[in-house]
Design a protein around this nucleic acid. Structure first.
Lengths: 187, 187
DNA sequence: AGAACTTGCAACATCAGTGACGCAAGTCTG
DNA sequence: CAGACTTGCGTCACTGATGTTGCAAGTTCT
């Protein structure tokens, strides 16, 4: 980590990151030129701030991973009652995912440090689901790994078309996750 | 549509399509070179059979869309009882999606004709869900467009990690779709 | 068998995207 | 205010991917 950047440079970096997310989420193959244009900045400036294209994407995924981890941690997923935590985590994560969908989708083939953050979050999520199963919130015959995958898939789908506020989206999401779309049939 | 191809050329085309799916699903930015290599064919041959990279991808999406439509139609989704049709459609589509995941994901920004096929399938799916709601299979307060999105998302997630036979996957999927992962709480 | 077709190979042309540099003009910061 | 930093612009070099062509060797079809 070189020197601290001057305030205007810091602002430029952030502007570029946001523009890159906007452009790349629409077209993952977009050029640096298009990103620079969207950021209202010269192409050379982008190259000055980020050594390479990969470095830019890496910076994006790193930033997003950070916010992702914060969003999950802020919901106290290990100490709050499972159902409450589930809502809270969902709403918080949706807020991040809506703005950083592309960056978050790139976590797998990124820096090991970033992959670690995501793995850690995944584990927190697994623990939360496990606690939920323990309190009878989740049917005992449900495979928890499958449950986690479904949860992630619903978040992904939900964030793809933001509508209304994240809290309402979270409510619908958790409701669907727990009850599905079917009618409650007699047992 | 030029002349009919000779049998060996026809085989080559199919080999390339399958190799392209395999390669591109792992790395969407893979080069023609890599695709040719995976197909066990010279790069020039790929270019002979497909005018451009886009043409190749287009051919893939077209082929996949065809099989997709067939898979759905084969389940008689408009005449079979909703619950049966849902299982049947799911199993059939999973079989296609497992092998043509990349090609199917490219339907949106493809040829209008291909987009039309997918739109038609989506409508069939919407009708099926509507019938399911009519028979009380789906809770009345559930938004059917959201239901369709969730259904698609589950298929996508399921096909991402094929395990066991498609029928078992379909069973788990439909179960999750209708009942969610939560316990059946008293009403 | 013979005509028509297909493929691999090698060579070539092109092009878009990437990345680097220096300089003049503008912006921060102490 | 003065020095340090940042940016836009023009320019250049480089690379990898794309797409084409001609020809010799092999395959299909009748």
């Amino acid at each position: 980590m070189g020197k601290a950047l001057r305030s205007d440079a810091e602002r430029t970096v952030m502007t570029i990151l946001e523009a890159a997310e906007r452009v790349l989420s629409r077209n993952p193959a977009a050029s640096m030129e298009q990103i620079a244009e969207a950021a209202g900045v010269a192409r050379t400036t982008v190259h000055r701030r980020f050594t390479s294209r990969d470095a830019l994407v890496e910076a994006m995924t790193g930033w997003a991973a950070q916010r992702f981890a914060e969003a999950v941690a802020a919901a106290n997923p290990d100490s709050t009652p499972p159902l409450v935590a589930l809502y809270q985590v969902t709403a918080n994560v949706l807020r991040v995912k809506i703005d950083w969908g592309f960056a978050m989708s790139r976590a797998q083939d990124a820096d090991p440090e970033i992959a670690r953050i995501h793995a850690e979050v995944a584990e927190i999520c697994a623990r939360l689901l496990s606690r939920a199963a323990g309190t009878g919130l989740i049917r005992s015959e449900v495979d928890l790994e499958w449950a986690r995958r479904v949860y992630y898939a619903l978040i992904h789908e939900s964030a793809a078309e933001p509508e209304g506020d994240p809290d309402a989206m979270a409510t619908r999401l958790v409701d669907t996750l727990l009850r599905g779309i079917g009618a409650d049939r007699g047992l």
